[in-house]
Nucleic acid binder design. Structure first.
Lengths: 122, 122
DNA sequence: CAGTCTAACTTGCATATTACAAGTTAGAGC
DNA sequence: GCTCTAACTTGTAATATGCAAGTTAGACTG
C-alpha cells in the first residue's frame, strides 16, 4: 500500500477525471479484482487468489481494503466474520463495467498479435 | 522499466483481455500520456512534462518508448531527429479513446466526493 | 467442548519500480 | 564555433510488489 492510499486524505495529481481515476485504480490489480466480481457476482478471498493471474496475498488484502475504502466493493454481510464472507461490487463498482468492457474490446482488437491466447469475455 | 516490458516477449498474466490490457497499460502514467495526445493531437517530450500531473523525465522516456513499441504512439516524423519531433497516436492508440471516456465519466460520477476539483473534459 | 482444520489475513525480507536531482548529448540559431 | 535548450540518461533514495512463512479465529469433528 502506498503513501497516497494509506493517508486519510488522498493526494490527487490533478483535477483531470482520467488522472484521478488512475490515481485510484491505476495499478495492475485493482481492475482485475473488479473484473472477477463482474464475472462472478461475489468472490471470497481465496477465490480471488485462485484467479489465473496469481495475485499475492498481501497485495490482495491491501487492494480489497482500498477498494472497500473508496466504496467500490463491500462485504456481502458486513456483520459476519471474515471467514467465507464474500465481497461484491457496490453500485459505484458496478458502474466500472463499461470501462472494463471498452478495455477488453480494445485488447481483443489491438493486443492479439502480441498475446494470441487472448479470449473473448464479458 | 520493468522486466516484463523490456523483454522481447511479454509475459502475460493470463488470456483475459482485461488483464492483458492492464499488463500493457495498467500503471499510473501510460494512459495519462494517451490522454494528452487525445486532447492535443501531438505532443513533444517537454510538452508532456508540462502537464499538471508532473511525470518525471525517466518515467516519461520509458513510457514513450514502451507505448511506441506496442504501437500505441509514434513520432510524427520518423526520419527527423528527436528535437521537437512530436509524438502522436497511432490508430490503435486512437482506439483507446472510448476507454478513457468511460473512465473519465466514471470518475466524474463516483470520485467527486473524494476529489471535488475534478473537472469535465473529453 | 477440546482439538484440528483452514480461510483470511499479517509480517519480514528480497526484488522491482518510481521519484527526484543531476548530468549528457546533439541539433538549431546566432 | 559557441551558446542554448529539448530530449534524454544516470545515480540513488523512497515506494511498491512478490514470495514465503507465520498468525488468528471461526467452523467442523469426535
Amino acid at each position: 500500500m502506498n503513501k497516497e492510499r494509506t493517508s486519510d486524505v488522498l493526494e490527487w495529481r490533478s483535477s483531470c477525471p482520467i488522472a484521478s481515476g488512475l490515481d485510484v485504480l491505476g495499478d495492475k490489480w485493482s481492475l482485475v479484482i473488479v473484473r472477477d466480481l463482474i464475472q462472478h457476482g461475489t468472490r471470497t478471498y481465496s477465490e480471488f487468489l485462485a484467479s489465473p493471474e496469481g495475485v499475492s496475498t498481501n497485495i490482495l488484502a491491501a487492494r480489497l481494503k482500498w477498494l472497500a475504502a473508496i466504496g467500490v466493493i463491500e462485504h456481502v454481510d458486513p456483520e459476519r466474520s471474515a471467514r467465507n464472507n464474500a465481497y461484491r461490487l457496490t453500485p459505484a463498482g458496478l458502474a466500472l463495467r463499461p470501462v472494463l468492457e471498452e478495455l477488453g474490446r480494445w485488447s481483443q482488437r489491438h493486443l492479439k498479435s502480441y498475446n494470441p491466447d487472448i479470449v473473448d469475455i464479458l
